[in-house]
Design a protein around this nucleic acid. Structure first.
Length: 471
RNA sequence: GCUCCCGUAGUGUAGCGGCCAAUCAUGAAGCCCUCUCGAGGCUUCGACUCGGGUUCAAAUCCCGACGGGAGCACCA
């Protein structure tokens, strides 16, 4: 079994690409086959040099590995030869009509005069002229079935002239194959046995098979699956680009976006994406998945292996009047092999306002991992008294910091779209104090802030910032 | 408008004619456990779009309706 993942190098990869890449690579792995990465760079107006590498980086991060890679643009000479063959066989013709005329003809199922005239020897001649000079902006069309009920079969375009400079071939070529032609031909000649694609291409299957059969090329076994969409997280550049341009999101790696870079930045791990995608299976059923499914899978990966720290949102000062000075080694995880951090305490602490509001004078709570405190005064700040170290059942265990804290802002992503509209409330902020120990962590580390959630920490020039992944 | 695809709990998914008073996950509720509101354990809730047909037997096959999605580009 040979599969392939054929992205167009025109942007960063997103969860939808991930689904395709994972399905492709997993099938190949399952059947001990080969998996090819092919850049479908047949439109120089779209392809951008930076994205060849960016997409590879994204795939590496995802944990998708391929056996070989190449660019469709490497093979244009082959495509030209095959085109010639079709023209010679009178299965393709040069069409000089304006695009509106062509559109109308296809709509009504009526062929234009070019179909008869510009094929065979005459067609070959015109084709050569197309190749010779971009001054002849004609197209090459398949002689399909103009009266087919499947509109994709009404003499689709096979090649067109594009003069934009291509990131790899520069100005060497100006006649480029369309998706229909390039996709079919490349799948076939590169040895792909099972090309998977999303089901919006279904109507093009007939074109795909027709092209290959006219060319007497091997026919792969096409398979379709549905697009993966996440509720409130659109994937289309059409929707995301304006947001970036207007400065509403930070970039393609914004934590609210379902791009691989956005997900990574938010603290979603590749294993979770993979498992999530595999869980969806691949059927043709359209579904709009809830992001909570991703969160749940991710949480299960993170929980056993991520260090736990204290973060106090909306801190309120607590002074423990008779506090013993202590030096504590508090474990970073119930799994003791993950080590601990040392905290020196005095009489001053900070605890979350939310918890303070729920408590009254006389209540006893526990500074988690430290000791018990009884509230004696409650104003702007609160005062408490030391109540010993032994665990008391049913007391609230609250996370805390000492005066040795670092202020930390945590960005909390929400759904970036509500229906068709940008959600201006989609990025909230948490202000609070984190224990100093997190500054020893490498930038990019994901931690669990107890009772808050999983957060990816990033060291920026202006200091540490947290990105909330999920509870 | 025309053509194609799809339709199982709130969400995602398994099911491919009898093993289905329908699987698993997620979610919600409750209990247990735990020095977290997380994780783990247990329990509960919750679905075959509708109407016909074929069959001894239908979530599974056929037809129709309804609902959703896609295509009708010189984009992939």
């Amino acid at each position: 079994m040979v599969t392939r993942f054929p992205p167009e190098p025109n942007g960063y990869l997103h969860i939808g690409h991930a689904k395709a890449a994972i399905i492709d690579s997993e099938y190949a792995r399952l059947y001990d086959g080969k998996f090819i990465l092919r850049f479908d760079d047949t439109n120089p107006e779209n392809a951008l040099l930076e994205f060849y590498d960016a997409q590879k980086e994204d795939l590496h991060w995802l944990g998708v590995e391929w056996d070989s890679e190449y660019h469709t643009s490497d093979n244009l000479q082959t495509h030209y030869k095959l085109a010639e063959q079709l023209i010679r066989q009178k299965d393709a013709y040069v069409c000089k009509c304006a695009s509106e005329i062509i559109r109308e003809g296809r709509f009504h199922g009526k062929p234009c005069a070019c179909q008869e005239q510009y094929t065979g020897t005459t067609g070959l001649d015109l084709w050569k002229q197309m190749l010779a000079s971009p001054e002849n902006p004609w197209i090459l069309r398949l002689h399909g079935e103009m009266n087919s009920e499947n509109t994709a079969m009404r003499d689709p375009t096979l090649f067109r002239v594009i003069t934009a400079k291509h990131p790899l071939t520069n100005e060497k070529y100006h006649v480029w194959p369309t998706y229909d032609f390039a996709g079919a031909v490349e799948d076939s000649i590169s040895g792909v046995t099972h090309p998977f694609r999303t089901k919006e291409y279904e109507l093009r299957d007939e074109v795909y098979f027709k092209i290959l059969s006219l060319l007497h090329l091997r026919t792969p076994h096409l398979m379709e699956f549905s697009r993966l969409s996440i509720d409130g997280m659109p994937v289309s550049k059409r929707k995301i680009k304006p947001l970036i341009e207007q400065g509403l999101v930070l970039g393609f790696d914004d934590v609210r976006l379902p791009t691989l870079r956005g997900l990574k930045r938010r603290g979603i791990v590749p294993e979770a994406i993979k498992q999530f995608v595999l869980q969806q299976g691949f059927s043709k059923v359209e579904s709009i998945v809830d992001f909570s499914l991703v969160e749940s899978v991710n949480r299960k990966y993170l929980d056993p292996k991520v260090k736990r720290y204290y973060y106090v949102p909306d801190p309120v000062q607590l002074t423990v009047t008779d506090a013993p000075k202590k030096t504590m080694n508090i474990p970073l995880h119930p799994d003791a092999t993950m080590g601990d951090r040392t905290i020196h305490t005095s009489s001053v602490f900070f605890i979350p306002k939310d918890d303070v509001q729920k408590m009254n004078i006389g209540d006893v709570f526990r500074l988690k991992g430290l000791y018990n405190v009884k509230i004696t005064k409650k104003n702007e700040t609160i005062q408490g008294s030391y109540q010993g170290e032994s665990l008391i059942a049913e007391t609230a265990k609250i996370q805390w910091t000492t005066q040795e804290f670092i202020p930390l802002k945590i960005l909390v992503p929400g759904l970036i779209f509500t229906g068709e509209n940008f959600n201006p409330e989609s990025l909230k902020e948490l202000q609070g104090y984190a224990e100093k120990a997190i500054t020893d962590l490498p930038s990019g580390e994901i931690v669990q802030f107890e009772r808050v959630g999983f957060v990816r920490l990033e060291k920026q020039p202006s200091g540490w910032v947290g990105f909330f992944a999920h509870k």
